[in-house]
Every structure is written in structure tokens, then in C-alpha cells.
Computed example of a mutant assay.
Amino acid sequence: MARVVLVTGVSRYLGGLYARRLSTDAGIERIIGVDVIPPKHPIGRAEFVRADIRNPMIGRIMKQAGVDTVVHMNVIATPKDTGGRVTQKEINVIGTMQLLAACQKSDVVQRLVVKSSAAVYGSSPRDPAMFAEDMNAKSTPRTGFGKDSIEVEGYVRGFSRRRPDVEITMLRFANVVGPQIRTAVTDYFALPVVPVPLGYDARLQFIHEDDAVSALVTATTGPSVGIVNVAGDGFLTLLQCLAMVRRPVVPVPMITAGLIGNVVKRSGLADFSPDQIAFLAFGRGLDTTRMRTVFSFEPQYTTREAFQAFASHLRPIVPGLEEVGGVVSGAAGGGAAALARVLERLQQ
């Protein structure tokens, strides 16, 4: 049973939500939240400690507090949240290595919970309809968050071999959405004009932010279960999602997707990578049998309900855009050039 819990990334939205939820569990004696910046949101009865997990000081914090459970939520998905790709990779990979080194030296750590991502499966036209936990990516992510997540999981597996006495649960989440959370995916669907890969309509799965936090709490206080996919029931296609957010659409050939990604990234409205573009073209499916039968977790929201909760809190699209059948027309038409003009208008 967890008594003293250390959570990384407590200043991020999900980290704060998790700390508040865990604070309601009377069985948890102490919660220590670490991050490089103070949280702007409430963190319940968690004690904030300003610390960088890339620094060996994290080991001293764990030793002094007698931490028996570590919840690693500081694997960052978007470089714009950290100041750039170099910093993002350092926090994700070097930070994880330092944290695991501290766990390995500790004689009181009994459990490690890692917030991972379904991004480890990649996205390609050769993918199976559903990825089970024992399957490998058909096309391994070569850049960005997906590559970082694979490296993080590799270090965790190495740690488990060195410390077989430590219980490990690694949750591979589908894209987390909801009324408050902001991610690369929610930023994409919030664009005033949304570029979509021409000729593709990917199947997508989501998990509501509340369900994601509930799964992390279950992993902290319940039995250890190894690797588990976590996603809401059902699928939505990309075009169904766009109909729900009521955004104008610009179909673009895959050959120009990189250009579009750069235009959107420069606008500051969303963060795009080649892996994200592949995800929008080919999608991803998760087999959640293990989530129910082994982890004993049932999300409260289906994929559709989770996405609807996000869509219902979106701001209306920018005034003045013309829309015919969901496809941008008139002055806003013309693919990449049109999207660039719209984004320039928004920055004025």
C-alpha cells in the first residue's frame, strides 16, 4: 500500500489534477510534488518541492522523505511547453534516467508508476487494427515524443531487471482530451482552419482527462500490473471529430503535410511533428482487454463522450471565415497558402 508518494510533473495540468485526486485518499500519508516551476493550480495536500529530475538531487529528496511510491508524469509531449525540442528530450530521457537511478539506489521504493503513451506504437498503413501490449510498432517513431516514449519505456524495463523487487505499472494512454487539458491534439482540433491529409480518414481513440487521472490513482493504490493500454471504448474517425468541433477543413496532399506542419508550428497555435502527421493519416487502435481483465479499470467516458466533452468547450471559430460543406472556400481556399493567410490574420 502506498504511503509516501512522489509525483513528477506536478505543475502540469494532469499532474495537478492527479495530486488533488490522490489527496482525497486517507490512506496516503504524504504526497510530494516536484517540478522545475511552482504550480499555478491547486495540488491538494501535496507538498511542492522545486526540483529538476535531471539533477541527482532528486535522490536526496526521495531518501529524506522516505518515498515508497514514485509516479512519473513528467514525460512531456510538446516541445513548445519546454522551450524547444532539445530541452524536451533532456527532460524526457535524461530526467527519466536520473529518476530511475534514484529509485535504484533507494532501499524503500516499492512501486513505480509511469505515465506512458500509445505513441510508442507509431502509426503506419501496415498497423494491425488493434495494438495489444505485447505488440511492437510496425513503423517505429523516429522523432519527437514517440521516440522519447520508447526510450523511456526501455529504461524502465532495464530498471525492472535490476530491481525485480520494485512493482511497476506502465500506462500507455490514448490521446487525453477533455474540457481543460491542452495537448498537441487538442490544439490541432482547435485550429480555426484544420488541415487534413487528403484521401485519409484515420480511426482515433481518446481517453477523458478524468479517466486518465483515475487510472493513475488506480495504478498507485491498486495491484501492480505491468504494461496496460488505457483508452475509452469505441473509435471516431478524423472527419467525425472535425464535424463535432465544427471547424472548416483544408484537405492537403500528404506530400505537403510537412509544409503545413511548419506553417501551423510557426503560427504558435499548435505543435506538429512528422509522427503527428502520420497519426492523423493512419490513426491507431488500442486493445483494452488487459485494462479491464487485469487492471480492473473501466473508463467512465467512451471515446466519443470524451471528445464531445472537449468539443463542447471549444471557442467558436474566428469570425469572417466562409464554410461550405465543411471545406474552406472563397478567400480562404487554396490549401497551404490559404491556411497561411488565415493564420497571418489571427496574428495581426
Results as ranks from 00 to 15, higher is better:
262 N>R: 15
262 N>G: 07
262 N>E: 15
262 N>K: 14
263 V>C: 07
265 K>A: 14
266 R>F: 05
267 S>Y: 08
270 A>D: 02
270 A>H: 08
270 A>Y: 05
271 D>L: 10
271 D>A: 13
273 S>L: 07
273 S>F: 09
273 S>M: 07
274 P>H: 09
275 D>Y: 08
275 D>C: 05
276 Q>A: 13
276 Q>P: 00
276 Q>S: 08
277 I>A: 15
277 I>S: 13
280 L>Q: 08
280 L>N: 02
281 A>G: 04
282 F>C: 01
282 F>R: 00
283 G>C: 00
284 R>G: 01
285 G>R: 00
285 G>A: 00
286 L>H: 03
288 T>G: 03
290 R>P: 05
291 M>T: 01
293 T>Y: 06
296 S>E: 13
296 S>C: 04
297 F>H: 06
298 E>I: 06
299 P>G: 06
299 P>V: 01
300 Q>Y: 06
300 Q>P: 00
301 Y>P: 01
301 Y>R: 03
302 T>D: 07
302 T>L: 06
303 T>R: 11
304 R>S: 11
305 E>P: 00
305 E>T: 03
307 F>W: 11
307 F>Y: 11
307 F>P: 09
308 Q>C: 02
308 Q>R: 13
309 A>Q: 09
310 F>Y: 14
311 A>V: 09
311 A>M: 14
312 S>F: 05
313 H>D: 10
314 L>P: 05
314 L>Y: 03
314 L>D: 06
316 P>F: 08
316 P>K: 07
316 P>S: 05
319 P>D: 12
319 P>G: 12
320 G>H: 15
321 L>K: 11
322 E>K: 15
323 E>M: 07
324 V>C: 04
325 G>C: 11
325 G>D: 12
325 G>P: 04
327 V>D: 08
328 V>I: 14
328 V>D: 06
329 S>W: 02
330 G>R: 08
330 G>K: 05
331 A>Q: 06
331 A>E: 08
331 A>C: 03
332 A>T: 02
332 A>N: 02
